[in-house]
Amino acid sequence: SKSYFLLRSIGVKVVWVYNAVFWVMLMCVTVIYIPLMLFGLLGNILTILVVWLRPHMRTSTYLYLSSMAVSDLLILLLLPLDLYKLWRPRPWPLGDLACKLTMFLSECCTFCTILHITFLSLERYLAVCWPITAKTVVTRRRTRAIIGCLWLSAAVSAAPVLVMVGVEDVGREDLGECRCTHFAISSGLLSAMMILSNLYFLVPLCILGVVYSLIGRTLWLRPKSSRRDQSHRNTVKMLGVIVLAFVLCWLPFHVGRTIFSLSLGTGTERQETYLDTNSQSDTITHYFNLVSSVLFYLSAAVNPLLYNLMSARYRHAVRSLIRTQSHAQARRMHTLTVHHSTTTL
């Protein structure tokens, strides 16, 4: 009897410590999320404006980067909902349709970013290793068509999410939560989607490894005096850093999702355990998911900073855009002041 009560008191203390540490981590994640979102929104909006308001920036490389900025922008706009779900997983206040659409959009943008990085690297491979072919194959019109196909492919690949997620009552409480449905787990749709998601990460990762190895070999064998090759080297360096940041930020995200998928069985008892809010994953999984979610949003926010650090052309275009907008606003203020003075006289 005494042993039972002793073990029970120890268990209560362990749960209390776990909850306290988890809430502290959740507060730290919130503090990181807010400036990350603001910085990412500003940077990606600047990238889009720079490419579309500066004609000389509408090269195939920057067309890909501006489209990827749109994808990252949408991911960051969904961050407040993700943060809300972390603090209050239920009840979901926006209804079943909003639950499906937000999860679909997040998955679609995830796939789209991966496809953009892959095709952008392939385009650089053609430009460096097959420059004559690239002049005829890589055009702005074709780049825009490819970008449209990438968005369409990402949307089709993410379409199963519309069936997989929904608002379901959890446990004995009549409170709906936006989450993966009982049907998705029992039918194996969740496992199939996790396989597709991992393929979306692993296959492009292999392609990127081969492509950058070939690009590096080609540039190494060429003389360094060529201005064109120097420009290629600068672009490849920038893209290499972007790819490295992508791998480092997204690898924990995919590992965490795979662990989550494997932790769900197909048996009724296991599904009921999953649907019970009092039976969560172990402590390490919780902490890992929090860290991987921060890295996931960091990837969406950090790309404009990398462009600014690695590309003098991008820095010059941003400065030119800001300077032009400042001068335009100053002229408008001067015009309004003169007009007001004239009318008062």
Results as ranks from 00 to 15, higher is better:
126 L>P: 07
144 R>L: 06
125 Y>I: 01
138 V>W: 00
136 T>S: 05
92 W>E: 10
123 E>P: 00
125 Y>D: 04
96 D>L: 08
127 A>S: 13
92 W>Q: 10
112 C>Q: 13
133 T>P: 00
94 L>R: 04
144 R>Q: 01
147 I>A: 01
132 I>M: 13
76 L>C: 05
89 P>E: 06
148 G>R: 07
114 I>Q: 14
117 I>M: 14
135 K>C: 00
88 R>I: 07
129 C>L: 05
77 L>C: 09
135 K>P: 00
81 L>C: 05
101 L>A: 11
81 L>P: 08
88 R>G: 03
91 P>N: 07
147 I>N: 09
143 T>G: 00
90 R>W: 07
109 C>W: 06
90 R>H: 07
82 D>T: 07
107 E>W: 15
78 L>D: 02
117 I>K: 06
97 L>G: 12
99 C>G: 02
67 S>E: 03
68 M>G: 14
79 L>F: 01
72 D>Y: 15
148 G>H: 02
104 F>Q: 09
93 P>Q: 04
138 V>Q: 00
144 R>E: 00
117 I>V: 15
122 L>K: 11
113 T>N: 13
107 E>A: 14
139 T>I: 03
84 Y>W: 13
86 L>W: 15
116 H>W: 03
140 R>L: 03
118 T>M: 11
105 L>N: 14
136 T>I: 01
74 L>H: 06
107 E>N: 15
76 L>D: 06
71 S>E: 04
105 L>W: 12
140 R>K: 09
106 S>D: 07
83 L>T: 04
110 T>Q: 10
114 I>W: 14
82 D>N: 05
108 C>K: 15
102 T>S: 15
142 R>D: 00
138 V>S: 00
66 S>R: 12
108 C>M: 15
69 A>E: 02
101 L>F: 11
112 C>M: 12
66 S>D: 05
110 T>P: 03
111 F>P: 11
68 M>Q: 14
139 T>K: 04
74 L>G: 11
